[in-house]
Design a protein around this nucleic acid. Structure first.
Length: 248
DNA sequence: CTCCAGGTACCTT
DNA sequence: AAGGTACATGGA
């Protein structure tokens, strides 16, 4: 599996907010167990018993070479890919992904991470029932606390796995019903939480990069262009562009 | 002081 | 569909 673990885990995807990094190893606690991930000579290593989950997290089934070949149809994208070799889309739990990206609203990565960490108990994001009942005051969430409360309450009586069985457009509409989930957050959740690789989240970095690289402006036009050019792998294209924009 | 950050909700054209 | 504005917070 082609992989650059460091770039992947620290590219603004959910693991960036949920996992920790210490001397080259990534770790988090799940169910009281410490899971670790690292690379040796490019080869992925994991702590005992964590192999299947690790492969799932890193979408080992994605043929990165084939995907990059499919989306690398112009100089801008090829350059983005070459500068971030081994960057993969990750697959995370839907609820954790929703929380991460509600926290991301009009926010920066270091602070998103702080907020998400403050919403974790025993290494995991508080489940909806707990979050709804929790006192979020003092966590410095800004106006996002009311979005989290409302969405947590709604999620208590909603089977989030349903979304994963819908078509992309319907799934997006369903997610936007939650307070604090708009088009951009929904696309992030669909991409990183449900594995819809056609999702193309448009944030300020992407908007900037699309104008710079392709001369395209406006959310509507950007999404149309992305769908036409990158189709079912638009999510990967987006992540390469995002990292390019941020490393500029 | 202003500007910005993986935007959304709500309003008016 | 497109364009405005308020909204919390902290760092540059």
């Amino acid at each position: 599996m082609e992989l650059n673990l460091e770039i992947t885990m620290e590219s603004g995807q959910p693991p960036h907010f949920l996992w920790n990094c210490e001397n080259g190893r990534f770790w988090r606690i799940v169910g009281g167990e410490r899971r670790e991930l690292w690379q040796e000579d490019g080869k992925l290593k994991w702590s005992e018993g964590f192999g299947e989950e690790a492969k799932h997290l890193l979408r080992s089934g994605d043929n990165l070479e084939r995907i990059c070949k499919a989306i690398g149809t112009d100089a801008v994208m090829r350059r983005a890919i070459s500068r971030h070799r081994g960057l993969r889309i990750t697959k995370n739990a839907p609820w954790e992904t929703i929380v991460c990206f509600i926290c991301s609203i009009n926010n920066n990565i270091p602070r998103i991470r702080k907020m998400v960490q403050s919403l974790m108990v025993d290494g995991e994001v508080m489940p909806p029932e707990v979050m709804f009942a929790a006192d979020l005051g003092g966590k410095k969430l800004g106006y996002r606390d009311k979005f989290l409360k409302a969405t947590a309450e709604a999620a208590m009586s909603y089977d989030l796995s349903r979304v994963g069985r819908m078509e992309y457009e319907n799934a997006k509409e369903a997610l936007i019903e939650f307070e604090g989930v708009g088009p951009k957050v929904a696309d992030c959740v669909l991409l990183f939480g449900y594995g819809f690789l056609e999702a193309f989240p448009v944030d300020v970095w992407i908007a900037r990069e699309m104008k710079r690289g392709y001369g395209i402006e406006g959310e509507r036009a950007i999404r149309e262009f992305a769908k036409k050019r990158w189709g079912k792998f638009a999510g990967y294209a987006q992540q390469y562009l995002y990292c390019s924009a941020r490393s500029r």
